[in-house]
Design a protein around this nucleic acid. Structure first.
Length: 511
RNA sequence: GGCCUCAUCUUCUAGUGGUUAGGAUGGCAGGUUCUCAUCCUGCCGACCGGGGUUCGACUCCCCGUGAGGCUACCA
């Protein structure tokens, strides 16, 4: 077991936090915690042109939402800071120049136009697009002259010829590349910012990162990084590359087909954070023994890098929804209620009428409010769906077509339908509210028993229950009458309201 | 074009030379309190192809094929 494990997540602030970043963070975090190591958050803001304001806060929000807190980072601080790359510019420049001095890198004065033309020509000739090393042969005098005349330059890495670079990837196994296939990578850009390659190698070394665990899209960059370590004379960390998460069409997960923003799942949909976590972590990893539910602590306990797979995994929304429903309906009710409340009250959330009415009710401390959540969550994968279910309790439903909706367009004869309503009305009138159990499930069962007992012999299940359910809920398609009544009867005037509703519909059947 | 990676049911995957190829999801059918959902039961459903190696290959090797990633003064 490795000691002094230090791993990191190194996102760039270029927009909404990506779901893939989250999974990488998760794997890194789990690995760190399992080995009593440190999980470092480093912000890689070296591309000013792509930077999007507010990205960092969203990143932080996403991580803390699923319950992973960095040990070191821009917010937490730490003894290897600063953890924001734009605050470390001098460092990268010094190291880049050091490489120039030792002949491992060189100044390049080629203009973007020349580079673009070069690439175009090479592509036309079906050659691999690579820098032609024009500036590699510049003399000291030429370089000095160009610098003195303020010509913009970059610092490029001098790729060695025909050197084989190999490493044992902790996930993928032995990997070998040849330096001939590698370009003379830009290390320091003309604006003074480092590229990812330089910055991450320098920082990983300085921050004493023991394991670089990242997505497979970085695989082909690793030989460049290894060569950089060698140029500096540093010991490289252990590398590991996680398989990609893909769209249903097997391409790299992109916004085009899926929502890749973590906050979409948190804010726009309202998933249980552990549902998303559970889902993400199983994309590419399986434990020896699978549990029904996970907490972060359990994941820390069960996680192991050698059970991480090598093949890409499709992001399957059906499976997320399955887990969403599981976590919503089987977690502790009070936890779900407070989670739901804080989701509704998120400043970015637009209230629905039902949600407003629910909040009003909740504020009165009425027991029905918790019961509502309890019943609604059984048929919801995330909070938006839960809110949708909630509507039925506040009468914000689509208008009914009478009598067709009650009789399923005549499938149930009107006489039976009317009988259904009449029996239901009698049951509700006779019900002893005080005798109803406190617990929702028990209450539902009591109601089921009563309805069973009172079922007329000449009424089949559908004819007996369907018209009443529709009349009571004012909804063609909804939860069953028992679940509905178990909540609505808790309301002060619930019983009267229900009787009234049924009477109204019974009247419609008179003619 | 070049380099690299990957390949078991729809999907996530278990499986490390001998298994009726297992689980979950999904779909279908039936049952439970009507519809939807849950739950229960049952069913459907996979080793990309071709060569080797071997007594024996899903498993090891090679070649195809397919998919994907990278190939920027983006990360």
């Amino acid at each position: 077991m490795p000691d002094n494990v230090r791993v990191r997540i190194a996102p760039s602030p270029t927009g909404d936090p990506h779901i893939g970043t989250l999974r990488t963070a998760l794997f890194n975090y789990l690995y760190a915690k399992q080995h009593s190591g440190k999980f470092v958050f480093r912000l890689e803001d070296t591309d000013k042109t792509r930077e999007v304001a507010g990205s960092f806060d969203k990143l932080e929000e996403s991580l803390s939402w699923i319950g992973i807190d960095p040990d070191e980072g821009p917010v937490q601080g730490g003894s290897f800071g600063p953890y924001i790359q734009s605050e470390r510019l001098k460092l990268y420049e010094d190291f880049a120049r050091q490489l120039v001095c030792s002949g491992k890198a060189y100044y390049c004065f080629c203009t973007p136009e020349r580079l673009a033309n070069l690439r175009e020509e090479q592509t036309k000739k079906k050659l691999p697009p690579k820098y032609d090393r024009l500036c590699r042969g510049l003399s000291q005098a030429q370089i000095k002259k160009k610098i003195d005349s303020n010509q913009p330059f970059v610092i490029r890495m001098s790729m060695p010829d025909n050197e084989s670079v190999e490493w044992s990837d902790i996930i993928k196994g032995r990997l070998i590349f040849n330096s001939n296939d590698l370009d003379d990578q830009v290390l320091l850009k003309s604006d003074g910012y480092p590229t990812y390659h330089l910055a991450s190698v320098v920082d990983d070394h300085l921050m004493e990162i023991s394991h670089v665990l990242r997505g497979e899209d970085w695989l082909s960059s690793t030989p460049k990084h290894l060569l950089l370590y060698k140029s500096f004379g540093w010991n490289p960390p252990i590398f590991g590359h996680f398989p990609l998460i893909t769209n249903p069409d097997r391409s790299k997960l992109s916004k085009r087909n899926n929502n890749t923003s973590v906050l979409y799942y948190k804010v726009d949909k309202g998933y249980h954070p552990m549902a998303l976590t559970h889902f993400m972590v199983f994309l590419g990893w399986t434990p020896e023994k699978i549990r029904d539910f996970y907490s972060i602590d359990m994941l820390v306990q069960d996680f192991s890098l050698d059970r991480v797979g090598v093949s890409p995994a499709v992001f399957d929304l059906d499976h997320l929804n399955f887990l969403g429903k599981k976590y919503l309906s089987e977690s502790d009710l009070s936890e779900i209620v407070s989670m739901y409340l804080s989701w509704i009250n998120d400043r970015r959330h637009v209230f629905t009428i039902a949600e407003k009415k629910f909040i009003e009710l909740y504020k009165t401390n009425h027991p029905a409010s918790e019961a509502m959540i309890d019943v609604c969550r059984r048929r919801a994968s995330y909070f938006v769906e839960l809110s949708e279910q909630l509507k039925v309790f506040f009468g914000v439903t689509e208008p009914l077509v009478v009598p067709n909706d009650l009789t399923i367009d005549g499938k149930i004869d009107p006489v039976s339908a009317k009988k259904s309503l009449t029996v239901a009305k009698k049951i509700i009138q006779d019900i002893d509210l005080k005798a109803l159990p406190k617990e929702t499930d028990k209450r539902i069962n009591v109601l089921i028993e009563i309805f069973k007992r009172e079922q007329p012999n000449d009424l089949g299940g559908q004819a007996y229950l369907h018209p009443s359910r529709v009349a009571l809920t004012l909804c063609k398609q909804s939860m069953n009458a028992f679940e509905f009544l178990s909540v609505i009867l808790l309301l002060g005037n619930g019983k009267e309201l229900m009787v009234e509703r049924l009477e109204g519909f019974i009247d419609r059947f008179k003619s």
